[in-house]
Design a protein around this nucleic acid. Structure first.
Lengths: 246, 246
DNA sequence: ACCACGCATTGACACAGATCAACGGAGGGT
DNA sequence: ACCCTCCGTTGATCTGTGTCAATGCGTGGT
């Protein structure tokens, strides 16, 4: 809890401000948001919320990684959302949650009670607008993901995932946060398998395949070096016209 | 074009009003929407818009079926959206379209020029709210779809698809439009294959499999009778706690 | 230093679904 | 009535990925 204190002062100093709901607020509006917000932390592995839970808060991810998961009774599960810093959880206007939310690393959330938050939406229209924009972004991401799940080979799935993570280490405003050629995987092999609609064995085999072909270099289990991003992009099967890499 | 004329009078008489953007508008606000709206029809098979196109209109589907499609250069394609009457196309705030939109039957759209529509959003807040709600609905649907693509067997995929279509013949307000036990498939085997991440051969085989097992009865290529909806639900692999059937 | 546990890798084999190929049947134009 | 085309079905075979099982490796606890 301690290490997140600095950013608790004000939303204005929030490191995720650029994508969060408050992206376009002036100081006055930030103050209104500040009055109803609070921070909450979860340990790695902890369940943040379960399908069917009443949804009385909405939140932005400040630090860490969480997953949105959908399961069938027989044990099959599919990740349906990967929540990285700046992503938003929860939906104004909904009463219950549709998915299991789990912290896969230590997670810090910036929470808002849903009711006062909804009341605030009425007073601050561009927050509403921002939420729509974020929902549409998520929808686009979900649709690309559907193409991946439905039509890509295991190798393409892994390559696409690596590209996705590489891209997420970059600010939407274009500022590079990390070294694109070295990415830290935020999730385990098992979570990756659930992300990609594969088994962990296949994920593992594809990693070694890409390594043997010189497309990636592994440095431990969670760190990947990418000698040439273009080669990886080629492996991913993505349209190259999908906008600039950054 | 002729047969859609009656609904062109006013949004208030629009048969899809219950889910369209104007769901909660009063007469005054409807009038404002009416002033910027116009209808457009497309023949079956016609391309409505292509990936990369400038997005100067948004629209509701009034009649017919359209698809949202994402493709890889080598010819693989994946449906990422099925647009049935009352669904909304286009996104305020976006300049270009991410997907190919195709009319699979004759389609009638209720269109709004994007710029005046966006201007209107500012004046009528619950339209904005309604759009967010619809985007979140679509997101939920996309996520269920991801579970289907990533984790379900071919047979479960077909059963799920039939359930989906069966449910869509019912109003969200609970009113049953058609006979649930007889459903008309809005799309071809090929489109179904693209919907489900399968090949048309597999789709065909699963249909005959379900038929031989007495789960469905086929009446031509586009009409399916379902003797017992519960049996089909069981085959679909869906949580039964996913809310009431209707 | 040792063990135990969780996570990742590797191998052998099985199988669901893809691929390739042939056939059937409905509708439309001449 | 005929053919042609499109769409769907069925069969034979192949293959990518799942399944089952064993092994390796790093980390934390005692």
């Amino acid at each position: 809890m301690n290490k997140v204190l600095p950013i608790m002062e004000s939303c204005a100093s929030c490191p995720i401000r650029h994508r969060a709901v408050c992206a376009r607020c002036d100081d006055d509006e930030l103050e209104q948001l500040n009055q109803i917000k609070f921070y909450k932390t979860y340990a790695a592995g902890q369940t943040i919320a379960m399908r069917g839970d009443a949804l009385d808060v909405v939140a932005s991810v400040v630090a860490g990684t969480a997953t949105l998961e959908r399961a069938i009774e027989d044990g099959r599960t599919q990740l349906v959302g990967l929540l990285l810093p700046s992503d938003f959880i929860g939906r104004p206007g909904r009463d219950t949650l549709q998915y299991d939310v789990t912290a896969v690393t230590d997670v810090t959330l910036c929470c808002f009670q849903r009711k006062p938050f909804e009341a605030l939406l009425i007073r601050i229209p561009h927050v509403q607008e921002r939420l729509l924009e974020m929902a549409l972004d998520e929808l686009d991401a979900a649709r690309d993901w559907m193409l991946l799940l439905g039509r890509k080979t295991a190798r393409e799935k892994i390559a696409s995932f690596l590209m996705l993570i590489a891209k997420r280490t970059v600010h939407p405003d274009g500022r590079v946060l990390g070294d694109l050629s070295r990415i830290e995987l935020p999730i385990s092999r098992e979570a990756m398998a659930n992300f990609l609609g594969l088994t962990i064995e296949t994920v593992s085999r594809q990693f070694t395949g890409l390594r043997k072909d010189g497309v990636i270099e592994l440095d431990g289990n969670r760190s990947v070096r990418i000698p040439d991003l273009e080669t990886l992009l080629l492996e991913s099967g993505d349209d190259s016209d999908g906008g600039p890499l950054i």
